[in-house]
Design a protein around this nucleic acid. Sequence first.
DNA 1: GTCTATAGACCGATAGAC
DNA 2: GTCTATCGGTCTATAGAC
Lengths: 186, 186
Amino acid sequence: MAEDDPSPRRDGRTTDTRQRIEATALRLFATRGFAATSLRNIADELGITKAALYYHFPAKKDLARSVFQPFIDDVDALLSRLDGRRSPREILSAYAEALVPHRATLTAMLRDPAAAVDLDLAEVSARWLSRVGALLDDEDDPSPERRVRTTVAFGGLTRALMLPDAEEPATREAAVAAAVAALDSR
Amino acid sequence: MAEDDPSPRRDGRTTDTRQRIEATALRLFATRGFAATSLRNIADELGITKAALYYHFPAKKDLARSVFQPFIDDVDALLSRLDGRRSPREILSAYAEALVPHRATLTAMLRDPAAAVDLDLAEVSARWLSRVGALLDDEDDPSPERRVRTTVAFGGLTRALMLPDAEEPATREAAVAAAVAALDSR
DNA sequence: GTCTATAGACCGATAGAC
DNA sequence: GTCTATCGGTCTATAGAC
């Protein structure tokens, strides 16, 4: 399973600088947004020059892709895993588990719509949204209000995953329980 | 009560161009983000030049302030109104009512952290968060999980307010009901 | 009120030395 | 693998004509 954390390259050697660039970029993307983060900002924080960044990544777009890819892969894997019939609780719980390691990435993606457009992630998230919507659909209740409840449940759970203590199981369980309650409200 | 919609100036005359600039700016801020929206983008959509914008607003910051101010004023008014003891349902419902006219502004503010920093809105939203947190606090349940539930409720409700049909009372009621359920889950 | 023209800073990206 | 130096482009903002 992919992670935001260090990973070896195809040739087996670990490139420390590359990882540090990705980590710093992710942190700045999440706090300032993609468009507002310049390569100079990233380089300055690392104590290197802009030109050095271009040795590791051919363009800003490629750096961003590299930062977002593990997140994208894990969400795709999650959606494949959830293909069959599952209860809303199982779906929301699996969603929370899968996304916790990618909290910073999640924040960055939700915040900056420009990044989604630039990196062709708009198509990716549209695909996610329709699949997730289908997973939580309830054929016994096809009302518009059902869609509102799924929005509250998913939006609220996603927000809770950004809390500082979201890694703690108790926090995650409480968040999932609250999301399930929102979904079942009537 | 302030609105995102046209409003007369102090001298009584309506300045159509000024309003059109604000409306276009808000739309672009909400879709692309503040940092990724240049004055040239705004001017082009209006069929005028960048320099013309500077006749109406001395700086980009001032344009942004003008765009966000009605939203800020209405939230401040809401918080004052909610000073006394209210039920969670009343608080969440009042929150939804107050923010519906400002959906686009809300989207823009949530999305772009750079705007919040540039415009000193970070202090504003921090103030909101602590007051809102206090309003929803439950002295019978001061557990960390309570805080998680308020996050799910508020985050989910806010997300639902961005739905295309959020102006419809039925949608709003369903969203508030779902948020209340999340808050009461145990 | 809107225009053309431009200043000055910063952007992403490249060339080439070491 | 990191540097200095620089390119062309865009940004915010200003000056001044109409």
